Amino acid sequence: MKSMAWLVLMAVTLGAHAGEEESTPCDNVETDQQSQACALFSRQTAERELGAAFDELVQRIRDQYPDEGDKVADLTGRLQAAEKLWTGLRDADCKVETYAEKAGTKAFEAAWNTCVAQRSDDRSEYLQSIGQQ
């Protein structure tokens, strides 16, 4: 139960980034089921934002090297390789963070989704910082 209280707190925190104007599953989280829905929503939102941050970085690379296709291809390839490595590290970290929960349970899924959302938010911020002057 201690872990569920932590998940509710994290869900409410993560839900805050979704935007104050629109209603989300992270509004007024009071039950385990609402916490699980919020964690899934947060993960999906964070993964969408991560994809957008990646795409925006690729566009910044293209804009920075408009007439240098070889540099664009090389840097984009490096970025894709880094994302693949980062995904492995994220999953390994989340396996450590969710160790106390039994795999396949709702508590595990909520903890996993919360972990992935947090790591994805961090990675999005990092990707957004690259190439900014």
Rank of each mutant, 00 (worst) to 15 (best):
S3G: 03
S3P: 00
M4S: 13
W6K: 15
W6S: 15
L9P: 00
L9M: 12
M10T: 09
L14A: 07
A16F: 10
H17V: 06
A18R: 10
G19H: 07
G19V: 05
E20M: 13
E21T: 11
E21V: 08
E22Y: 09
T24P: 10
D27A: 08
D27L: 08
N28Y: 06
E30P: 00
T31Y: 12
T31N: 11
Q34P: 01
Q34L: 10
S35H: 06
S35M: 12
Q36I: 07
Q36R: 15
C38E: 09
A39W: 02
A39E: 05
A39S: 14
F41R: 04
F41H: 13
F41V: 01
S42M: 04
R43K: 11
Q44K: 13
T45F: 10
A46N: 03
E47L: 13
R48G: 05
R48L: 09
R48K: 13
L50M: 09
L50V: 01
L50I: 02
A52D: 12
A52M: 07
A52F: 02
F54I: 00
F54H: 14
D55K: 07
L57R: 01
L57G: 06
V58M: 07
V58H: 02
V58F: 00
Q59E: 15
Q59S: 10
R60P: 06
I61L: 08
R62M: 09
D63A: 09
D63M: 05
D63I: 00
Q64T: 12
Y65R: 02
D67G: 06
D67R: 09
K71A: 10
D74K: 12
L75W: 05
G77V: 04
G77I: 05
R78Y: 07
Q80P: 01
Q80I: 06
Q80L: 11
Q80V: 08
A81N: 08
A81V: 04
A81D: 12
L85Q: 13
L85R: 10
T87Y: 07
T87M: 11
G88I: 01
R90N: 11
R90K: 15
R90H: 09
D93A: 14
E97F: 10
E97P: 00
E97S: 12
E97M: 08
A100L: 11
E101Y: 06
A103S: 12
G104E: 08
G104L: 06
F108I: 00
E109Q: 14
A110C: 07
A111K: 06
W112D: 09
W112P: 00
N113P: 00
C115K: 04
C115Y: 03
A117N: 04
A117I: 04
Q118V: 02
Q118F: 05
R119N: 07
R119G: 05
R119C: 02
R119Y: 10
R119K: 15
S120F: 03
S120C: 05
D121L: 14
D121E: 14
D122E: 14
R123V: 02
R123W: 08
R123C: 04
R123Y: 05
S124Y: 03
Y126I: 01
L127M: 07
L127T: 01
Q128F: 02
Q128I: 00
I130K: 07
G131Y: 02
G131P: 03
Q132H: 04
Q133V: 04
Q133I: 01
Q133D: 15
